[in-house]
Each structure stands twice: as C-alpha cells, then as structure tokens.
Amino acid sequence: MRLVIKDNATLVAEWAAKYVTKKINDNNPGPDKYFVLGLPTGSTPYGMYQKLIEYYKAGKVSFKYVKTFNMDEYVNLPRDHPESYHWYMWNNFFKHIDIDPKNAHILDGNAPDLVEECKSYEEKIKAAGGIDLFVGGIGPDGHIAFNEPGSSLVSRTRVKTLAQDTLEANARFFGNDIEKVPKQALTVGVGTVMAAREVMILITGSHKAFALYKAIEEGVNHMWTVSAFQQHEHTLIICDEDATLELRVKTVKYFKALSDVHSQMITDDDQTLEKYWIIH
C-alpha cells in the first residue's frame, strides 16, 4: 500500500486527477483496448472530477476509449433527482467530457428486477475485462461504496438496506426529512472493488481521521470495510493532513519520507506507472 499525504483537499483532488490522467495515458487506450475506470460520487471526489474536466479541456486526457463503472446508486430515486448518482455523474463529470454514453455504466436503482440488475452489472465489468483502476472514497465509519460496517469483505454487487445511521446522515440532502431518504441502494461489493487491478482511495477531513487510522493501522475488519484493502496488491490511499490526525507520528513520518517518490509518480512523463508497481 502507498499512502500519499497532501497538505489539503484541493491538492488531494489534483494529485488524484493527475494520477488518473497518467494512468489512462500510460495505457494508451484505443478502439481495441479500453481503459476501465471505477468511479465514486460524493464531496471528496468532486474536486478530482473538476480537475479531470480541466485536463480534458486542455487536451491532456481523453475519455473516448475509457469505460466507467460507478460504485452505487439509490433504489427508487428518480434519475433526475439532485441526490441521485446519475444526476451527480452527469452534471459533475459526464456532460463535460468526451466519454461515449455507451461506455458509462451506473447501477439502475429503478430497474424492475434489482437482483438481476446487480448480477448483470458484475457481468458487464467482467466483459469489459475487469476494472483497471477503482477510485473510491469512504464514509466516517470506514465504509466504501455502500458497504457499511459488517458487510462481507468478499461481497459482490447487490441490493443493500441502508443503516439507520446512514439514513440520518443523508437526511440533510433530502430536506431533513428522513422519510424521503431512500432506504435501499445498489452497490458494488468489497470483493468487486478488490478484484480491480488497482484501487485508489481518497480520504479528506478530520471527520474521517479515525476511519483512516482503522483502515491502515489496525487489522482487516469487516466493521471498517475499507481495511480490506490492506490485502490488495496495489492500494493507493490519498489523504490530506487533516485525515492523518488519528495516525501515529511514526506512520505519518514514514509515508511522508516517501513523498518525493509520490510526486515523481505523477510528474515523470518519461516513465510509465508500471515502474512503481515493480519497484515499491
């Protein structure tokens, strides 16, 4: 695992966007070889999308030969509801870039058969050749996608009933009326993300500091589902200073000592990222 610590959330977003850009360009995707990206929603990745749009407009990256798979979506929420993840992805990312609509996948929370929808989602990921890079964020309780505490660490895409805590936390997005918060969601499983060739997790803010501590300094634990990625071969966690508040000084210093390598990763135009997979 790599832990990249940046000064603030803006720099986290920028680093992540540069990494995604470099990753896509390294792979030199084309009509016969797509790059497959897993994508999150939420406030943390928002800045990354903003940067990616900027790089796209500057001609630094194209999404023409990129396939995307989003992590999750609410059940029974109209697609044009401002809290739906379709709405989020369309307004914050897809409408600004050159992705082919056929290549953008989001779980359909309004599908007539939700179980079938989840099953076919896994099949679509498989048909695309698996996910090259899964980008994710986490909740303060350490959940990734809607894999809330207690979720199976080998789970796959499925219908998930949301915890009372999540409903209460989300009520602010639905006019503070808990009755309006969707009670279920479709989500990729921890196992689905684990199957990606590489996982990049963005964690910012002091309210997520405890989750970061649980993710990397303690053992693998299904009550903190993000901790599962300790067992992934290529995990990259990008966090800001605030998110390190619960880490040991030793941990922070250890990873900060590697910051030269981390900045080289995204600036070294002559080298592909392969190098950093071989030499850790």
Binding site: R79, D80, H86, W87, W90, F94, K95, D100, P101, K102, A104, I106
Partner: peptide, 23 residues
Amino acid sequence: EDLWVRNGVFVNPEKLFFDEKKP
C-alpha cells in the same frame, strides 16, 4: 451549459446519455 438540438427542438442531453446512450 451546452445546448442540444434534434429534429428542430431542444432536447434533454441527460436522457440522451442514459436512455439512448447517444453522443
């Protein structure tokens, strides 16, 4: 914002994207 037109009328690009999957 972009403006999308087909058959002489303004169309909702979000629907084109997710339903028709048309660029």
